[in-house]
Design a protein around this nucleic acid. Structure first.
Lengths: 120, 120
DNA sequence: CTGTATCCGCCTTGATACTG
DNA sequence: CAGTATCAAGGCGGATACAG
């Protein structure tokens, strides 16, 4: 059974919650980093400048819970844990990539607009 | 002069700040609401369920500062203020629309994934 | 290596009251 | 109508310490 009336403009709609979650500091960057290939915990933290261990763990757990990322523990010493996007996660990566690209493309204009605005 | 090395994965990169800003609770919804046509303050607040006056004002100011929205005051009584997307704002609307659509399309799957995860 | 647990400051957000 | 000002609460996120 499919729901046809998801409306992010309504307060308690799950799709609104999803937007809220995407909007946390780190989700975009974690999903973007996993886009190319699966990575280990430490590799992720090295590539995402400024993320703390706690936030990386928390973000990964949320993504796992939402079915966007799989977590695979390999029985080795020392432990090796691989994170990988699911099909669902890869489908999210598309719009996020577009957003990331927009940010890169428009930063010059935005920075200038801010300067003008602040100069008044 | 154009900057070619914007990298959102670096801590202090402006494009990273942009992602942070997009990621606030309301930006996606405000831009989405303004996509169709320009709107007044009250119309916006009516359409975005749950937004407070303060947050709407704050979000609009930020968007104006970043050059994504114009604010036009008409000299009437009572005052009429129209908010409208700039060209830059409309270009952002595209990726945000994609994101919004993703949220709507995948909510069923996400809700189910959460149920499975929580049931363990 | 891959986490968990705890403490804590700050910032965001919301509620409320007031203004041109 | 379209805001501004103020205050209080809560959560986010960072730092640190510890563990399997």
């Amino acid at each position: 059974m499919t729901q046809s009336a998801w409306d992010p403009y309504e307060r308690d709609c799950p799709s609104r919650q999803m937007l809220d979650r995407i909007g946390d500091r780190w989700t975009v960057l974690v999903v973007g980093t996993l886009a190319a290939r699966s990575l280990r915990f430490t590799e992720l933290s090295r590539r995402i400048d400024g993320i703390s261990q706690k936030m990386l763990t928390q973000t990964l757990r949320s993504l796992e819970r939402d079915g966007l990322v799989t977590r695979t523990v390999h029985a080795e010493v020392p432990p090796r844990v691989e994170y990988e996007l699911t099909a669902s996660g890869r489908s999210l990566q598309q719009p996020l990539q577009a957003l990331e690209q927009w940010a890169v493309d428009h930063m010059d204009a935005v920075v200038q607009a801010r300067r003008r605005y602040d100069a008044r």
